[in-house]
Nucleic acid binder design. Structure first.
Lengths: 208, 208, 208, 208
DNA sequence: GATGAATGAGATTTCATTCAT
DNA sequence: AATGAATGAAATCTCATTCAT
């Protein structure tokens, strides 16, 4: 009788891979043009499949959108966490590395996708919550470093929350303007952003 | 038949007022949800008018969008210019006032509309150019002050362009998070933003 | 400013008329082929308009479906009520007239629409309730007459509810088979149905 | 290569059993919601199988539909025929038993499937013919008994055809309302239906 | 035998736009 | 100036059907 056997591991893996492909394409497009401006036709076209296929994996555009954001956020945070694991040094050194990595990833690998996090209102309310969570997890990395630096007297700020918000806003916006520079100039631009933003944790301090 | 009478002044004024009402409503909505997510139906509804009426004043959604941005940008810049006219003091003082005013306006008066400027890619290409111009004019105010401060040795930065971009990004994003605070707490939040962002023009300097 | 003036009476009437046209066409089609088998394209085609226009009056297929049923039920019941007003006589006479009218209307005027009432499960749950209400109102007419006859000793039944159900089922199904007869034969068929169904209220009685 | 082995008997039986399972599930669903409202996905889900598997047994939805009806009709008629074989007595007694059995089966065993026969227009035309045939065979049982009763003077009707139609309609509709009663009350309800419908063959007769 | 994946046709729905009044 | 009505193109979504494995 129709006892469903659970799909084999190989099949599972393949399905997961396909889903990742879709999510990547979707996240790119959503990041490039915004959720509403991207039609499923666009997504399907980029993947060279038909619209219908997308519905085999996601039951609505909303769901695809949420999943795309989620994957993106997860991957992003994972990369930042990984960077911190292999970076030694003072909070100063590590925070700068974190900012630098964040902007690098944004500019080079997801040239436009970060904006997904910037416009929470654009999303149906179900997604908004999820986005906020991702944002929190992401912020936590920066927050921990900043607090470490504050504890050691290395940093000085007016308000940790405000610094986080400003940093996040600037980093997220970076690809918009760095993307317009010739590739050769981007490395320098990213460095400047990192240097500039580091000033936010040295408010009113003596020069270092 | 008789020559067409040019519309009386009174009629002209009335028309202008109506147009302003429409533009305000449109700018708010576009800012809240993004250009694509807003239908003319939404705009008409907020104005308690029918869709068709909008076409009496604007010949397309694009045009309405452009006009909304333009008006918003003009008014905004005018307010900032006006502030500078009545503010005396060092570049430090005046820049801080400028930032403070910018964020205040954003948070209090156009709680949602500022984001219009953040996402140039979301707009049809015709609008994109116009937005860039507005942005330039807006940036010019800040740039002049910063350069003044640099000339006098009061400020120090890694790169003026980078500072401008970071400042702009943070200020534009501010309403998103300040808007979630209880109104009583907003004043303090805006102050903190201003203080925090001022650090961007004191990079690596001795404490002030 | 955009104070909406309520639409003029003439406009209101026109709108109402248009809506009736749509509902009639829709009810016919739904009755002919079933709710699911009818696409809005079909409805639009029969009315010689585009799909989009239907959405000007009804915000979804569901809503159109519900409204179609409702109108149909209202009109139907009104005709039966009107018949009773102008018919004098014993419950026997009046009940027979009621049955006859019901079947006549079904066969001649709404050749297929009655089935809408027969398949409540085919409808989304929101509609099911509405259909039940209509059914109750409709049944009330028959029930009152039957109870009158029972009180006077003219009728005898095993169970009023059961009689109502059987009557309703048979009357609703009638168009399905009478519709296949040549038009000339239909009058006789309807008469036979009425005579046959009258037996249901004379259960176990002496001959009359 | 070797000649294709005809499938062993055991395999054949298994296949037959599987087909029966599918047909039962399909008939239930079609009866519950109507042919069009049921997707193969629904059918597959109820069987805990994938859509594709259904195509191993049936080459199209149409074919599945036809087969479902046919099986149902066959089984149904067989049960009625079997009942008649073991029931002795006057046409009165036997007809009542037949009605009672029909409604019992409908209410208890195929709570929803009977409506399949009520709405021939809903079906693709290929099926419609087949349905009519089944209906004829089914009617034949009732018709024979009625004519026997008429011949013996036990029954009196206005028109055999009309009586058959009314009976059939009422019996088919019965599960719709009896299904809503608490199970304990159903037995009585079925009895009442049988008693009530028997009146149809005693039109204008002296009480019995 | 059965499954997961994919397709393509068609259904529902949205929306910028036009137009007669 | 403004409205109600209508349109048509495009977007979201559904589903019977096919097929490689």
């Amino acid at each position: 009788m129709g006892a469903v056997k659970p799909p084999s591991e190989r099949v599972q893996r393949k399905r997961g891979k396909r889903i990742q492909e879709i999510l990547t394409a979707a996240a790119e497009l959503f990041g490039e043009r915004g959720y509403d401006a991207v039609s499923l036709e666009h997504v399907a076209e980029r993947l060279d499949v038909t619209k219908g296929s997308l519905y085999y994996y996601f039951s609505s555009k909303d769901e695809l959108g949420t999943a795309a954001i989620e994957t993106l956020g997860d991957e992003w945070t994972a990369r930042l966490e990984h960077l911190l694991e292999r970076t030694e040094g003072t909070p100063e050194v590590r925070l700068r590395a974190l900012i630098h990595e964040h902007v690098t990833v944004a500019v080079n690998d997801y040239p436009a996708a970060l904006r997904l996090f910037l416009m929470p209102r654009e999303w149906p309310s179900a997604q908004r919550e999820r986005i906020k969570e991702l944002r929190l997890r992401h912020d936590a990395l920066f927050r921990a470093l900043i607090e470490e630096g504050l504890a050691s007297g290395e940093f000085a700020v007016t308000s940790v929350d405000t610094v986080l918000q400003c940093m996040h806003a600037a980093m997220s916006q970076a690809p918009t303007w760095c993307g317009e520079l010739p590739p050769a100039a981007r490395g320098k631009a990213v460095d400047e952003v990192a240097d500039t933003l580091m000033a936010l944790v040295h408010i009113g301090q003596l020069g270092r």
